[in-house]
Amino acid sequence: MHFEYQVYEADFVNAGAASSAIKKTLKQLNINPSIIKRVVVALYEAEVNAIAHAYGGTIYADIEPDKITVKIVDTGPGIPDIDWAMQEGNSTASPEVRDMGFGAGMGLPNIKKNVDKLNVSSTVGVGTTVEMEVNFI
């Protein structure tokens, strides 16, 4: 099963819509609730990141019998130092993002904790791609 969702810059009103849709699909597929939670937490953090830090992007999700693969491709400023961004507490979030209850530098670390595979690639001035995989078994 393949799904695609668009996210838009600073569209906090709809932040979580894609994650919520994936959650409902995984529930219908009777995936283990703990695994669903890991997928959804990681995806939601990534979705908020694309809305908060980039100019928008696309979420591609592929559900296979044994795993889900999600790729979030944004156009935006990119991440100059991915290792720095992966450390808890490091953030470049705006006051608006902080008002939403995010922006404490926990997004990427939270994603890492919840997925089985993670790859973050970024080009400054172009955008960032986050690829993640969670096994169902």
Binding site: Y44, D99, M100
Partner: peptide, 30 residues
């Protein structure tokens, strides 16, 4: 901090928060 709320694994505690916007509800849903 909603990112902290997303670190609770399989626990389902009562959430006390002073953050009052749609993200509060969405985060708890996730």
């Amino acid at each position: 901090l909603m990112s902290d709320v997303l670190t609770l694994g399989d626990y389902n505690p009562v959430i006390l928060t002073g953050l009052c916007n749609m993200q509060t509800i969405r985060t708890c849903e996730m």
